[in-house]
């Protein structure tokens, strides 16, 4: 494996296949994400989008193919896998904050326990990050006391606290009440313009248009097409994408 230069992709999936029992959820997926690139993955439910997101930090294993992150094949288990995961942030649809820990503790746990950073330093940085996502005043509360939008912004701060090389977003706004979607998207747009590498599974076309460099359309476990956002939404190349867009645009 050659030393990763700045021009090599940060993530590279080659011929990746994955089954859930009889269901073939990822079919020969080839995808690479460059450093600083924001890729939006869009497509119908059950098309394999979330699974694609989850195989990159190995929350799901793959059956065949090859995934490299920062020039190295994903480790299978143990400490090296934990180390890889600490470099790839993940934001979930259902937030998944640690219910028994305060907002600040949620954000500082990783830096203290995984990176070995001193508590005081981690808390200072944690508060800065909470400030950045606009919820520093809630630092001492518990997750259940916050709204969905606030919880999701904490989850983003928790991912950022690890100084990840990349953040994966698995439908980050799908579980939110409509009026809370924008506050989360605003934080994500901010991250994108700061140059964070992001893979975002979402149906938010506004976000895709504002922040994405590339849109990947997935259906039935395959990548059907990849284009620049504007081109994808105005002139989709495939019938499958055209059909999908007509369904979500007319409502």
């Amino acid at each position: 494996m050659t030393e990763a230069g700045s021009s090599s992709p940060l993530v590279k999936l080659e011929a990746v296949n994955k089954h859930f029992g009889a269901l073939h959820v990822l079919k020969d997926i080839d995808l690479s994400v460059a450093r600083g690139e924001v890729v939006v993955v869009i497509g119908p439910s059950g098309g394999g989008k979330s699974t694609l997101c989850r195989v990159i930090n190995r929350l799901e294993t793959i059956d065949s193919g090859d995934i490299t992150f920062d020039g190295q094949t994903l480790p299978a288990e143990g400490k090296s896998l934990a180390k890889l995961r600490s470099e790839v942030g993940m934001v979930f649809q259902s937030f998944n904050l640690f219910s028994h820990k305060t907002i600040l503790e949620n954000v500082t746990l990783g830096p203290i326990k995984v990176r070995g950073i001193a508590r005081q330093q981690a808390e200072q940085r944690g508060l800065e990050l909470l400030e950045r996502v606009g919820i520093a005043s809630q630092a001492a509360k518990y997750p259940a006391q916050l709204s969905g939008g606030q919880q999701q912004r904490v989850a983003i701060a928790r991912a950022l606290a690890m100084d990840p090389k990349m953040i994966l977003f698995d439908e980050p706004t799908s579980a939110l009440d409509p009026e809370m979607v924008q506050e989360v998207l605003d934080v994500m747009v901010g991250l994108a313009s700061d140059g964070m590498t992001m893979l975002v599974v979402t149906h938010e076309m506004g976000f895709a248009r504002r922040a994405a460099h590339r849109v990947v359309f997935m259906a039935d476990g395959q990548i059907v097409e990849e284009s620049a956002p504007e081109a994808f939404f105005t002139q989709p190349k495939s019938d499958r994408a055209r059909d999908f867009l007509s369904k979500i645009l007319t409502h």
């Binding site: 934990a82 995961r85 942030g89 979930f92 998944n96 219910s99 995984v114 690890m162």
Partner: peptide, 17 residues
């Protein structure tokens, strides 16, 4: 919730952590 275990692994905690 299973999601919390996934979130814990996703920030790089080992299984026992």
């Amino acid at each position: 919730p299973l999601g919390q275990a996934e979130a814990a692994r996703a920030i790089g905690l080992t299984f026992f952590q």
